[in-house]
Amino acid sequence: MLQNIKYILIKLKLIQPSAQDIHKWTKAKQAEKLEYVLEHGNYKTRKLAAEALGEIGYSSSIPILFRAINDNVHNVSIAALNALEMIGCTDELGTTIINKRFNWVKNKREKEAKREANKNKKYKIYVWERSSKKSFERVKEQLKRPMR
């Protein structure tokens, strides 16, 4: 009874579910509550809900997990990808999207690691002379010489 009242308060957006609530819903295999939290929760609960949906493994939550891939928080999108992989999304579109997204995440992490590695590296910057400055200096030298 208390859990139902708490879920109503969550739906009214008065409170956010805790990790314990998500854990209880995972044990009870209440996918509809987890799907709601994945769509409307804060970033921590969205991540936990995506992981929980992967543990439950219902194929009915695949469309919601596909929408969660485009989440602004990268941890949520990665959790959704992992959940889709755990569920075993076997259609061609699903595997293509999962592979491309995992490659994107891998490339992003490699770029960040490369940036961190080159953070303290010092570069030599050469100062090039402007051609207009050179021609001005040449004209000054010519004016100093006597005319013939």
Rank of each mutant, 00 (worst) to 15 (best):
78 I>D: 03
9 L>F: 14
17 P>Y: 02
60 S>G: 08
63 P>R: 07
13 K>D: 13
120 N>A: 00
6 K>W: 07
77 S>F: 02
103 N>S: 02
112 E>K: 06
62 I>V: 13
28 A>G: 07
78 I>H: 10
28 A>T: 14
31 A>Q: 09
135 S>N: 13
145 R>T: 14
22 I>N: 09
101 R>N: 05
136 F>I: 15
147 M>Y: 12
3 Q>W: 15
75 N>C: 02
114 K>C: 05
99 N>G: 00
81 L>Q: 03
35 E>F: 04
6 K>T: 14
107 N>H: 05
46 R>C: 03
120 N>G: 09
70 N>A: 12
130 R>A: 10
73 V>E: 07
126 Y>L: 08
34 L>D: 11
119 K>S: 02
94 G>E: 01
1 M>E: 15
82 N>H: 06
140 K>A: 13
48 L>R: 10
78 I>Q: 01
48 L>H: 09
123 Y>Q: 11
118 N>E: 12
97 I>L: 11
6 K>I: 10
139 V>A: 14
25 W>K: 07
137 E>Y: 15
116 E>I: 06
28 A>P: 03
80 A>R: 05
57 G>H: 02
37 V>G: 03
74 H>N: 09
84 L>K: 01
58 Y>K: 14
74 H>F: 05
84 L>W: 00
61 S>F: 03
50 A>Y: 06
60 S>K: 15
99 N>D: 04
141 E>A: 11
